[in-house]
């Protein structure tokens, strides 16, 4: 079992990173750390995809020296998925950061619990 984990070291690391990111996004109170957690979570998925897409001994799928045999190259789809995923995570990160700035301007805190307490107070008054 343990040797399998070591053999698939990239995938193992990716899963651990995913867990770290997920817990950070779920449990941390600080918004910036939450966003960092989200990025770690997404990056873990990209690592997993890239590791799975890589085949040892094969080239990047760009024809440079006239080899047209498909077996010489690795599958370009996982890399494409990683690129798409990066675009998606950049836009969600930007949105969350923008939201965090607006929240900080209004409540002068990055702590989500503090913010929610202040929101409740505002409403009560």
């Amino acid at each position: 079992m343990a040797s399998h984990l070591l053999y698939n070291i990239e995938e193992t690391v990716a899963m651990i990173l995913f867990g770290i990111g997920f817990t950070m996004l779920l449990l941390h109170r600080n918004l910036i750390r939450k966003i960092m957690g989200m990025n770690i979570m997404d990056t873990a998925v990209y690592l997993f995809l890239a590791a799975k897409g890589y085949i040892k001994g094969r080239m990047v799928p760009i024809v440079t020296d006239g080899i047209l045999d498909a077996s010489a190259y690795m599958n370009p789809v996982p890399s494409g998925l990683v690129l798409t995923g990066i675009v998606v995570s950049v836009s969600t990160t930007a949105l969350m950061l923008a939201l965090t700035i607006r929240l900080y301007e209004r409540y002068h805190s990055l702590d989500l619990d503090q913010i929610l307490i202040q929101v409740k107070k505002e409403e009560g008054s």
């Binding site: 995913f18 779920l26 997404d42 965090t100 929240l103 929101v119």
Partner: peptide, 30 residues
């Protein structure tokens, strides 16, 4: 009023969901 704090809560929960969905898709693809 609450719309920003509502939006950030929505985003956080949604991102947790999307993250799980994405890793599920990735595993399925593998």
């Amino acid at each position: 009023g609450r719309s920003f704090s509502a939006a950030i809560r929505y985003m956080i929960m949604s991102q947790l969901g999307s993250g799980l969905f994405l890793i599920g898709l990735t595993l399925l693809y593998d």
